[in-house]
């Protein structure tokens, strides 16, 4: 469905900042074994692990968990991390509004200039940062992103947030947690825990940006 023949080559050529993590990572000793056993169904397009309805259910649960944890919607501010985190933040906000009434402020937080690998690639295009007029001070900020992997994006987001003000608390909501953390960071709200191998690539597509809602696992190391 989503798979175009270009996906494999795209992960090597296009300068997406997320995509290169798999590429730059040397495949170390344990991985070849995992590569042999892990792929249950190896479609060239990859394997769909969440479809549109799964994603919708996961986001509904996250919305409820955020409300339960926060004891309501007061002081909440959802900040999506571009690009996929932003539409996810809007969807969670809609679901929270449907339960609680009223509306939850949503913004976006670009972390490009705070990344620790900024110097490793050509200067990158900045993505929009939009902070609601009230700012982040004394808000309960929920960072929203599509996939939690090394944790480096979230570290960058925490630094970016630090320059914007002092929230009452910062929480993290992700659609997929694929493991392999490189920093002491964890998510408060997880749509789905997805054990993966390092040679795999997790792709989230959303109707807002890509036409369809899906989470797909692709093999990138297979042809290397």
């Amino acid at each position: 469905m989503l798979g175009s023949p270009s996906i494999h080559s795209a992960s090597f050529n296009e300068p997406s900042r997320e995509a290169e993590k798999e590429v730059r990572r040397p495949v170390t000793a344990p991985e070849p074994a995992a590569g042999d056993t892990a792929p249950q169904s190896t479609h060239p397009e990859g394997r769909v692990v969440l479809d549109a309805r799964d994603i919708s259910r996961a986001l509904t649960r996250i919305a409820h968990e955020i409300l339960e944890r926060n004891k309501g919607a007061q002081d909440l501010l959802l900040l999506g991390i571009p690009s996929r985190g932003v539409p996810l933040a809007h969807r969670i906000a809609e679901k929270i509004a449907a339960v609680e009434g009223g509306s939850v402020p949503v913004g976006s937080l670009d972390v490009t200039m705070y990344r620790d690998d900024l110097r490793l690639k050509p200067a990158r295009t900045l993505l929009p940062t939009e902070i609601p007029a009230d700012g982040v001070d004394d808000k309960v900020v929920v960072l929203v992103d599509d996939v939690l992997f090394s944790g480096r994006t979230i570290r960058a987001a925490l630094d970016a947030l630090n320059d914007l003000g002092r929230p009452q608390a910062v929480r993290l909501a992700v659609l997929v947690d694929r493991g392999h953390r490189e920093l002491p960071i964890r998510a408060d709200f997880v749509g789905k825990n997805l054990p993966t191998s390092l040679v795999e690539r997790v792709r989230v597509t959303l109707a807002d940006t890509d036409g369809t809602d899906a989470v797909v696992i692709e093999e990138t190391g297979a042809d290397r």
Binding site: E14, P15, E22
Partner: peptide
């Protein structure tokens, strides 16, 4: 590469 954001979105 104009298709820069096209296949983005893998991890956090």
């Amino acid at each position: 590469q104009p298709a820069e954001t096209d296949t983005e979105g893998a991890d956090a």
